[in-house]
């Protein structure tokens, strides 16, 4: 994955796969603390304790079709190679919280990339998904939320406009 926003899309897809109807994404860039953090929280089915212990192992998956599950393993490797870490806490039937941190000035830190496109794709076809996004950059904040209108998630023109609005919102943080 060449952008952190692709990892974010992967995390959001995990939440959807877990049956979540409510997902929140928070991205924090804090220059004084030299920290970039990504938080995803959902109300999906959660992860059992024994699975949680080995969840970032690339040969761990809930799928029965094959034995690899690379998403979290790749994110953990990226976070750790950038002086950060990956933490996951979960309660079955309640939901899951994932947080990934990175050193903001680390030479290997991938670019954040196109978060607006990530959110547009995540919302595509996801009727009923209540989604919120907050981006904090050195004291400035941008927020976007979608109440999960059943039909709008399928309308191309609407989704593209949403992408444009988020792009403008992120730009305003500079």
């Amino acid at each position: 994955m060449h952008e952190l926003s692709l990892h974010i899309l992967d995390l959001l897809q995990n939440s959807a796969e877990a049956g979540a109807s409510r997902v929140s994404l928070v991205v924090t860039e804090d220059t004084p603390q030299n920290l970039l953090a990504i938080y995803v929280e959902d109300n999906g089915k959660g992860i059992a304790e024994e699975m949680l212990e080995k969840i970032a192992d690339p040969f761990t998956t809930t799928r029965t079709s094959r034995k690899v599950g690379l998403g979290l393993a790749l994110l953990k490797a990226t976070a750790e190679s950038c002086g950060g870490n990956l933490e996951i806490s979960s309660q079955p039937a309640v939901g899951t919280k994932v947080s990934a941190s990175f050193r903001l000035d680390h030479i290997d830190l991938p670019p954040l990339g196109n978060i607006a496109a990530t959110i547009m794709v995540f919302l595509t076809g996801r009727s009923g998904m209540v989604f919120s996004y907050r981006h904090c950059r050195d004291g400035k904040e941008y927020e976007f939320s979608s109440q999960g209108d059943k039909r709008l998630s399928e309308h191309p023109e609407f989704l593209i406009k949403v992408r444009g609005i988020i792009e403008a919102g992120i730009k305003s943080l500079k």
Binding site: M1, L6, L9, D10, Q13, G69, L70, V121
Partner: peptide, 11 residues
């Protein structure tokens, strides 16, 4: 749009 799809350009 699984991990493999995302890495290959599904977005």
């Amino acid at each position: 749009v699984g991990t493999c799809g995302i890495a290959a350009g599904a977005r």
